[in-house]
């Protein structure tokens, strides 16, 4: 039995940086339980009855918002969705005022996505609710990394010792950042590959090996994670053209052949087919892209469940 005084991770889930390995593994183990819930006839458990989860999305999102909404509903929480374009934010309300007003309605968990790095941290310091970072600017996207880890563990049995190549626009990618932190914490060897203009500075603090060509990064990889070219975050002349990017960095069958024969291919979505990945690979037998989406609901259920527990009152078993 677990020591009741020992609590899970942190009050909020703002990033994978600093998340301890045993807390991450505990969350992934719980997600296995929730994965089973989604396969039942009644895909819902009463665990978070009476809890309120607000999805506060200041940036467009289909997958992540829907995934958090379904996760909350399968736990019987009341889920409210707010998006930047349809809320008072478009009338000029500040983030602080929005949070203060939502706070007055006593939510238990705020799920925050924002284009500014650090916005969820700002919110977390100003609310009694628990905060989940659902993607902040170019900083972190912890639940994406956790669902990637869950998918890798299911496909490969373990994460420790695997070589994971993360390819594409690393510099702007919160997915790359969160994955690099989490997967190295869990014992994987992480590689970054991308055009020099889209790589983090050479003196970066990530525990990764960096490549400015995709071929050497794929050599012997167990997991190939392809990132979307984020046109909305690319300003100036970082990329000559999408066609050139596809030619030099797109994941083709020939390039994938450098990875291990049983390597899996991942993509956080949305996919630009024919740019960062060939459509035939995205739909191919080694792709686990839709498994990632399925894992997302289970992992987010585990996150909401762990954050909503009120510590200190251990019941009789």
């Amino acid at each position: 039995m677990t020591d009741p005084a020992e609590s899970w991770g942190t009050r909020h889930l703002l990033g994978t940086e600093g998340l301890k390995a045993d807390d991450a593994v505990h969350l992934l183990d719980l997600a296995e339980v929730f994965f089973e819930v989604s396969k039942r006839r009644v895909r819902k458990v009463p665990t978070l009855r009476g809890k309120t989860v607000i999805n506060l999305f200041f940036e467009p999102s289909t997958r992540t918002r829907t995934s958090f909404e379904i996760a909350g509903k399968r736990l019987s929480a009341d889920v409210v969705n707010l998006s930047g374009s349809s809320s008072s934010v478009s009338k000029g309300e500040s983030l602080l005022d929005t949070v203060k007003n939502l706070e007055a309605m006593r939510p238990d968990i705020l799920v925050v996505r924002h284009s500014a790095s650090g916005a969820p941290h700002y919110v977390a310091a100003r609310t009694h609710a628990r905060v989940v970072n659902a993607g902040d600017g170019t900083h972190e996207h912890p639940t994406q990394a956790l669902l990637d880890a869950f998918t890798i563990r299911r496909a490969k049995g373990a994460i420790e010792g695997l070589t994971v190549a993360i390819c594409g626009d690393i510099a702007h990618s919160r997915v790359a950042r969160s994955n690099a932190m989490l997967l190295s914490t869990l014992g994987a060897n992480v590689r970054f590959a991308g055009p020099r203009t889209l790589l983090p500075p050479a003196d970066n603090a990530y525990p990764v090996a960096t490549f400015d060509r995709i071929e050497p990064a794929l050599e012997g990889a167990d997991v190939v994670m392809v990132l979307r070219i984020q046109l909305e975050r690319l300003s100036g002349a970082l990329l000559p053209s999408l066609r050139e990017y596809a030619r030099l960095f797109g994941l083709s069958a020939a390039r994938l052949a450098r990875a291990k024969p049983d390597a899996i291919v991942m993509h956080p979505g949305p996919i630009n087919r024919g740019v960062e990945i060939d459509g035939s690979i995205a739909d191919g037998p080694r792709s686990v892209i839709l498994d990632q989406v399925e894992a997302g609901v289970a992992v987010r259920m585990a996150v909401l469940y762990l954050l909503s527990a009120e510590p200190g009152q251990a019941p009789l078993s």
């Binding site: 039995m1 677990t2 020591d3 009741p4 020992e6 609590s7 899970w8 505990h26 719980l30 296995e32 339980v33 089973e36 819930v37 458990v45 009463p46 665990t47 978070l48 009855r49 009476g50 809890k51 469940y305 762990l306 909503s308 527990a309 009120e310 510590p311 200190g312 009152q313 251990a314 019941p315």
Partner: peptide, 22 residues
Amino acid sequence: VDIALYRDDASTALPKPQIGRS
């Protein structure tokens, strides 16, 4: 069956709950 998700005291459950699979 594991009943952890169905407890009537689920919200005050152990901070690091162990749940088995049903």
